[in-house]
Amino acid sequence: MDQTLIQTPVADANFVGQPATPTPPEKVSEMEQSFIQARKANVFYGEKQALFDINLDIEEKRVTALIGPSGCGKSTFLRAINRMNDLIPICRFDGNLTIAGQEIYDPAVDVVALRAQVGMVFQKPNPFPKSIFENVAYGLKIHGMTSSKTEMADRVEWSLKSAGLWDEVHDRLDQPGNSLSGGQQQRLCIARTVAVAPKVILMDEPCSALDPIATAKVEDLIDSLRKDYTIVIVTHSMQQAARISQRTAFFHLGKLIEVGATKDVFTNPREEQTQNYITGRIG
């Protein structure tokens, strides 16, 4: 059963055990209920506290931008959503963070199953040192998502098309992923993430290493992915946040200062700090 069709989002995303079977997400009407919910979320690096009592609602099938000056905790929050912070031994999470109603810091949650359904795109394009095909097929392989070679090839093609990369690479799938240009590499990373049919895609400054033309392509891609995925993007560029996101959350010094519709945050911020940041007076 496709989880996106359920009205009450309780316990539909299956983070415990096997990941859901890959069906290309279907179009459904937007829901009012917030998909990702953080309540009193605190993150500590050893003694140092990086996030303070974050209460944030992220809506399904929207692009939510996290903005704020360097060191404000926006990346830390992003990495808390797929528990990549667990890789840092001294990092500790406290509070509640639910996705589709399920607490992701619950001991029963398998972090592998979580990450299979909450994909991530990194700041620097990081394709595996393998062929383009292998890059996209890797997630399918480890999760055993396809049963035949043709099915895998179809899925790879679908993923590359979703990432708007198919026309550029369809005739050289066997070439190494790092032979592509920076922008193509980043779209390859997005294709790799999309291939395993995640519910959420986290993006950590995906365009900061790209030139303006490549950035425009990735932004178009993000906009087209919005209808199928819940996207959370960290960005330093306020123009980018304004262009691609529907909601914007402003972080400052580990605290969530303001969250709202992007239009409102940029044109009519409630908080003075937000005003100062978007007009360039701090940060």
Binding site: V112, F128, R192
Partner: peptide, 13 residues
Amino acid sequence: PSFKEAALALGAT
């Protein structure tokens, strides 16, 4: 470390 991170983020053990 980016290779390992990418694989982990995809749900590799």
